[in-house]
Amino acid sequence: MTSSTHWTTVCKQTDLVLDSGICALVNEIQVALFCLPSQDAVFAIANTDPFSQANVLSRGLVGSLGEDLVVASPVYKQHFCLRSGRCFEDESQSISSWPARIENGNVEILI
């Protein structure tokens, strides 16, 4: 995880789509945000799919692989860990991830 010490407000909690993703622009960086009600949590990872170079990970399907929560790239279906950004098929293609939380109805991330 990459992190700073400053929580940035990104969008409203109501902008999130349950069990699915949306994309936000934060300091010129495209961030994919996923909301998993069963975990009572929000996750933030990079939106760029390293395999296709397309900015689309927020449009992937979320799910679990064993114990890990993942999103599958909508282009070629590789899995990325929602917590760490690790790519399960090829570690060298792992992506950034940031801590995320909901405060007073806002989604915030440490970026």
């Binding site: 998993l36 069963s38 992937g60 399907l61 979320v62 799910g63 679990s64 692989l65 929560l69 993942v70 599958a72 279906k77």
Partner: peptide
């Protein structure tokens, strides 16, 4: 579990 890109 949580489902996946196969079962969903």
């Amino acid at each position: 579990g949580h489902g996946c890109e196969i079962c969903r």
